[in-house]
Amino acid sequence: MAVGLGLSIGTVNSVTALADTASAKAPPGRLGHRRHARPTPSVTRRTTLTFDSTGSARVGLIPRHGRAITEFADLGLRDGMTARVGHRTLRPADLVAVVTDCLITEAMSDRKAVGAEVALTHPAGYGTDELAELRGALDAVGLHHVALVAEPVAAAAWLEAAHGPLMPGLALVYDLGGASLDVTLVRVGAGRPRDPIVGVPLRSPEFGGRAFGALLAARGSGASSVAGTANDLADELRAEHARASLELVYRCLSTADVTMADVDCVLVAGGAARPPEISGVLAAELARPVVIAPDPERTIADGAALLARQTAASAEEAAAGAHRRGKGLLRSRRKLTRVASAAALSAGGVVLAFALPADGAVAGLAPFGLL
Rank of each mutant, 00 (worst) to 15 (best):
E236V: 14
L233F: 02
D235A: 15
D262I: 05
R238W: 15
E240V: 07
D175W: 13
G199M: 04
G177Y: 08
G209W: 03
D195K: 10
S225A: 15
C252S: 08
G191F: 07
G213H: 09
E206Q: 13
S180G: 04
N231M: 14
A161R: 09
A230N: 00
D235N: 15
L216Y: 08
L246N: 03
S180M: 09
S245E: 03
G199C: 04
M260T: 08
R219Y: 02
E247H: 10
G228D: 14
D182L: 00
V198N: 09
T259S: 13
A256G: 03
A179C: 04
V183D: 01
G209A: 00
A234C: 01
R243L: 03
D262Q: 11
L170K: 03
V153P: 00
A190V: 07
T184F: 06
P205C: 04
A239I: 11
L233I: 01
L170N: 06
H163M: 05
A223L: 01
F207N: 02
V173C: 11
G164M: 05
S180K: 05
P168T: 11
P201N: 13
I197H: 06
P165Q: 06
S180D: 15
P201K: 14
L172Y: 11
R243G: 13
L233Y: 07
R238V: 14
E240G: 12
L202K: 14
A190P: 03
S204D: 09
A161S: 10
S221D: 02
S224A: 01
G228V: 15
L176V: 01
A154E: 06
Y174H: 15
L216A: 10
T255N: 09
H241F: 12
A218I: 00
A239Q: 08
A190C: 02
H163E: 06
L185C: 00
